[in-house]
Amino acid sequence: MSILQKIKNTVRSRSIHVSYVDVGSCNGCDIEVLACLAPRYDIEQYGIYVHNNPREADVLLVIGSVTPQWVDKLRDIWDKIPEPKVAVAIGNCPISGCVYARRGTLTSPPVEKYIPIAAQVPGCPPRPTEILNAILSVAPLIFKDYEEKQP
């Protein structure tokens, strides 16, 4: 392993920028993601910084089943995130559509149709600790030795 890769690994393990996008949920999961910011869970002690800018994000949290406006825009947001990147589905909605995947709905789940999802956190809504745990366990898998893993 090159020395450059080692430095990159160290830096990446302690600096994860998270961006979240709500593609049509009841915003219950939204506020649970926000609750991770609270000093009780203290997401920043793990070096995770939550903000909402896809251009400098590493992890994209996708919340909600996909509404008509997001069908084309979700892919755009995914393309704007620089490599290496990972998308995590939060809640039941991006996985299956939850209660919205029924007759008469305007949504078109799942999110996997639009962007690749690396991890899923089921729950309606999942607890902040579960969200935190998912980010912490999936990020190292993708970011460690990223350049060497490239073909």
């Binding site: 949920s25 509404t67 008509p68 406006q69 008469g104 949504t107």
Partner: peptide, 13 residues
């Protein structure tokens, strides 16, 4: 708007 329109009234019927 339209980013969160799930049509829940239509589902409820």
């Amino acid at each position: 708007l339209g980013y969160m329109k799930k049509g829940i009234e239509r589902i409820m019927r």
